[in-house]
Design a binder for these strands. Sequence first.
DNA 1: TTTCTAACTTGTACTTTGCAAGCTATCACA
DNA 2: TGTGATAGCTTGCAAAGTACAAGTTAGAAA
Lengths: 135, 135
Amino acid sequence: MRSECPIAATLDLIGDRWTLLILRDIMLAHRYTFSEIAASEGIATNILMDRLERLVAAGILERIVDSADRRRRIYLPTERGIGLIPVLIDLVVWGNANTPAIGAAEVAEASRIDRDAVIRQFEARVRESIARKTL
Amino acid sequence: MRSECPIAATLDLIGDRWTLLILRDIMLAHRYTFSEIAASEGIATNILMDRLERLVAAGILERIVDSADRRRRIYLPTERGIGLIPVLIDLVVWGNANTPAIGAAEVAEASRIDRDAVIRQFEARVRESIARKTL
DNA sequence: TTTCTAACTTGTACTTTGCAAGCTATCACA
DNA sequence: TGTGATAGCTTGCAAAGTACAAGTTAGAAA
């Protein structure tokens, strides 16, 4: 693809069928490990692996070893990754209003009233998790 | 895929590598016909056709015959489609800050200052085009 | 030391995409 | 009225990406 358009360049990184769902798992649902993410939707493990590696390579996620259980790898969003929360929130709002999906209705409703507050709230939670995990 | 999560349900509709670029062409760049969109990026015509049909089927776009040239089909966003402008704007902002893409820097900058105003502006332009084309 | 679990990896079938060429309807012009 | 050009759309086939199942390795737990 490779375009000078920022939308096209962004979709080169996150514009496939799984990447934004993975980022949703990590940043909205607080699922930070390979097996938690794999269990949440029916994503094939080789695809999940590939996407996590790409996201790390793109500087959107960071991979750290869990010091409490060194088998476990924790995938945490970088600042660049946190910057995608607004996109996820917009998708929740649109999906809630325009698809039969019923989940996260409170988030959608709260976002319609004060989007910035909802985004700040998720950002704060993610940063809190990062601080806790990287200790 | 097909989930009860509104993000997953939305990505079922628009979460592939081309659909959001097509919507960007239509709603931000005001390219309303098959050939205009086909020319803007290197999208294969069979894929473009498939995506336009899906978007029409999903109620995101509407297809009308150009009365001035009946060969031409004009693809216009519905209200549901217009509702995706915020997603596009977020992608412009993120891509401008986090990818080497250089286009649309003014839009990104203006959105950082007053996102709602930029969205309203694009919405107004699209509605104006729709009014003109459907006459 | 055996068993279990988490994170990968590999192989193979299947689905989607990309490319090139073609088709049909309509328009522009002589 | 006929000829060429253009817009939208279709088809066939090769290449790429995805899904499913099974296997491997490192570390934990008993």
